[in-house]
Design a protein around this nucleic acid. Sequence first.
DNA 1: AAGGCGTGGGT
DNA 2: TACCCAAGCCT
Length: 291
Amino acid sequence: MSKANPLLDPVLTWYAANARDLPWRAPAATPWSILVSEIMLQQTPVVRVLPVWTEWMERWPTPAALAAEPPGEAVRHWGRLGYPRRALNLHACARAVVERHGGEVPADHAALLALPGVGEYTAAAVASFAFQGRHAVLDTNVRRVLARAVSGEEYPPKATTAAERALAASLLPGPEDAPVWAVAVMELGALVCTARTARCAECPISGLCAWRLAGKPAYDGPVRRGQSYAGTDRQCRGRLLAVLRQAHGPVPKAALDAVWDDAPQRERALDGLVADGLAEVLQDGTYRLPA
DNA sequence: AAGGCGTGGGT
DNA sequence: TACCCAAGCCT
C-alpha cells in the first residue's frame, strides 16, 4: 500500500478557490463537448480554443451532427487553431462514434484510445473528466508540476518516461477524488507552476516543492530545440490551406500559387495536404477542402 | 524515436 | 527582436 499523497489536500483546496470557469467544465458539458475541447486544446492555448469550441458546439452538438457533414466543413470551421489535421481527426471521431458506439462517446479508456487523434493523454482526460474514471492524466502541466514538486527538476524529460507514469500512478487518489485531482494539478501547472516563471508565491504546495526547497536550480538537461517556422513547409501548408478555407468552392491553382513563391516547395506542400486528406484536386485542376 | 505538424501571444 | 511554448499525436 502506498503512502497518501501529501499534495492532494492543498491542491484540491487551491483548485476549489482558483479554478477557471471554463465551459467544458460546466455541469452541462457532455462527453462529446469534452472530447472536442481536449482535441482542440492539444498544443493550443485556452483563449484561442474558447470561441471555436463554442461555435462548434452550437453547430455540431452531437457526434451525429458532425458525422453528417463532409470532412471539409470541419476543416473550414477549424479556423486558425493550427494543426488542422485535428479537425479531420475530430470528424473521423464523430463517424467512428456513430458507427462503433451508437453515437455515444465511449467511457472506456481503450475504446477512446482507438479513436483517431486520441492518444494516451486525451483518452485519460476524457475518461476522467467526462466519465469520472480513475486515470493518471499526464499532460505537459502535470509533468512539469510533478517534475518540480516531487523530482526537484525544473522541467520534465522531453518524452514521457515510465518513471513519470509510475510516479503519477502512485499519487493517484481513490476513485472519489481522482478526477478532481487530475484537473486540479493541470490547473495548477497552467496558472501557477508555469513553464517560464513559476509563481511560487501563489503556490499551495511551495512548502513541499522539492525544486523550490533545493533553491530552484536551473534546468540542466539537453538544450530544447527551438522549432523554426518561417520558410518551412508548415508555414507554406498553412498559407495554402487558409486560401481553401476562405473560399467557398473550388479554387484555381493560380490562387494558391499566389501565396507562396518557392514553386517546388509549394508543390510539395500542396501534395502533402492532398495526401493528408486536407485538400482535394478536382478533374479540372482546381482545389478545395475535402467533400 | 526524433521530427513533422500551425498559429499567435508573452517575454 | 527573436525566441519560447501552449490540455499531443503519429510515423
